[in-house]
Design a protein around this nucleic acid. Structure first.
Ligand SMILES: NC(=O)c1ccc[n+]([C@@H]2O[C@H](COP(=O)([O-])OP(=O)(O)OC[C@H]3O[C@@H](n4cnc5c(N)ncnc54)[C@H](O)[C@@H]3O)[C@@H](O)[C@H]2O)c1
Ligand SMILES: NC(=O)c1ccc[n+]([C@@H]2O[C@H](COP(=O)([O-])OP(=O)(O)OC[C@H]3O[C@@H](n4cnc5c(N)ncnc54)[C@H](O)[C@@H]3O)[C@@H](O)[C@H]2O)c1
Lengths: 254, 254
DNA sequence: ATGTCTTTGTGAACGCGTGCACAAAGATGG
DNA sequence: CCATCTTTGTGCACGCGTTCACAAAGACAT
């Protein structure tokens, strides 16, 4: 027993449900677009459509932030942009370190959407000595040895891990020990962190597998009821499949 | 009204809850690692620890697949790997197209974890004529004009969008029209798709904003400990802060 | 003012997901 | 064959999240 893992207090963030927090950036994005078009106000219905959610859900989400709407009119775009930005902590500047400047790390470093919302790349860090000093996206890569100093000097509290899976936990431990309390993990590993440290993961492989599951399901349903073809597509042929194997436990991927 | 968007039947995937499906890849990864170490069996407790979940949850998840465990012993690793792989549709080969071979698209193309579980990069597609023919990760980039033909020829049903946000919906429409029914979207936009098409999104910016929210909350609670400081403002020191800039409500991001 | 019309904010019901706790199943040893 | 011990599989309760549906709030016209 005693998995030694984090207990999720989950939803108790001083009132605002976690699910709502996860949608606020979505609303903010839609609102920012409206703001750029100088649209003064939006109704919950319009904004919900733009954000791809149910309008009742959106209204309830906003109700957690306060009563910022005007009945019969809608929400003031600028005001709402400010309120959400403030709630998300985007009115301040968040220095971020990226660890592991390989294919993905470099892409992240080059990503413009980073800086656009108050996230500043404070440093790029890699263990490879040959990369030290080499500029990526205009920022010189620094060696892992400097990690603690950088985090301390810049007051970095958010770290991005883009190292191979094998190094991720180790890197994570160092980040946490140095003072980082929020981690965005791209490596396909479960990270162990002490209480109080937030970890979010982005896992391409998992996303694809979930898609594959549904894809297979669609194909299966279609085959099942040939009388009623579900609106999907009615695929002419299947992905690849029907190969000579198909039942052999050809599992054991790398 | 009539947002014109998809109705999510969500959880009704012939018994298996969506939340369970999302965890299966996690279990599979842990099991694969055990398999490589030639571990014959695992208990739900051990496997749950490795996957970072509650053991009861794991057992319940597996119960949706059938009764594959042995009481008093645990689960047979190889057998479970096979069962989960089959359930996820990984015993077959899924050709995938990546559209938008920029920083991110190239990183994805180079990503080894792609092929490792039955996902095969069928084609790399970009609108830039200058990229046509140029090999990325050993695969020549093809022009967008070829998109429909490629999808049709290879029976591609999964597409990855890594274009700028402005082009994403357009690309999505073409993919769907050509027969793709599952999309993994990296562009920061809400995609509109017809019923029967699955979309999953990976949004770096949203993840960071969620982290920032919690980070701000932590800082607020910490401050509130001594006096009562309204958690929003009045920070003593913040991540970076105290810099020459850093206090201007630099809201209104791009 | 008064009435009408639009849109918010939310009470309430429902369904999904989670985790506890335990009975049953089976292994293992004597 | 029986006793004991381990671990699964699941019934059950609870809480979160979603959605409906509507009263109240306010804009706007007359
Ligand atoms: N490339 C992708 O599209 C992609 C997609 C999803 C997930 N991932 C994951 O992201 C991670 C990085 O992928 P990649 O393709 O960029 O790999 P990569 O091999 O190109 O880059 C890894 C980098 O990490 C550095 N590194 C290794 N150990 C380190 C350590 N201890 N400290 C600091 N730096 C260290 C290496 O020097 C290298 O530069 C992997 O875990 C991969 O599974 C990548
Ligand atoms: N780079 C990152 O780390 C990162 C992170 C998160 C999200 N994103 C998002 O991923 C997307 C790509 O990011 P990037 O950094 O690779 O951008 P990029 O500009 O480097 O690459 C975009 C590529 O898409 C191609 N393209 C443009 N329009 C196209 C079309 N209609 N059809 C096909 N190809 C087209 C361009 O030619 C270019 O090669 C963006 O939406 C970005 O917001 C990137």
């Amino acid at each position: 027993m005693a998995t030694g893992r984090t207990h999720r207090p989950a939803t108790r963030s001083r009132g605002i449900p976690e699910a709502t927090v996860a949608r606020l950036p979505l609303y903010l994005r839609a609102l920012t677009a409206l703001s750029e078009r100088s649209v003064p106000t939006v109704s919950s219905e319009e904004l919900a459509a733009a954000a791809g959610v149910n309008s009742a859900k959106l209204r309830k989400d906003f109700s957690y932030l306060g009563s910022y709407g005007t009945r019969g009119v809608g929400y003031d775009v600028e005001y709402l942009v400010y309120q959400i930005s403030r709630e998300l902590g985007l009115t301040q500047d968040w220095p971020v370190v990226i660890v592991g400047i390989g294919n993905l790390g470099a892409a992240l470093a080059n990503y413009g959407g980073f800086a656009s919302r108050g996230f500043r790349v404070a440093a790029l860090i890699d263990a490879d000595p040959q990369m030290a000093g080499k500029p990526v996206a205009g920022i010189p890569v620094q060696h892992t040895d400097e990690l603690e100093k950088i985090i301390d000097d810049d007051g970095v509290s958010i770290g991005v891990i883009a190292t191979p899976a094998g190094a991720a936990q180790q890197v994570c431990d160092r980040l946490v020990a140095a003072g980082v309390t929020s981690i965005l993990n791209f490596a396909p590993t479960v990270l162990n962190v002490p209480e109080g440290v937030d970890v979010r993961k982005v896992d391409l492989s998992i996303e694809l597998q979930i898609l594959a599951f549904h894809e297979q399901r669609k194909a299966g349903e279609e085959a099942a009821a040939d009388g009623v073809v579900p609106p999907a597509v009615a695929r002419k042929q299947r992905p690849t499949d029907q190969g000579p194997d198909g039942d052999v436990p050809a599992v054991m991927p790398a």
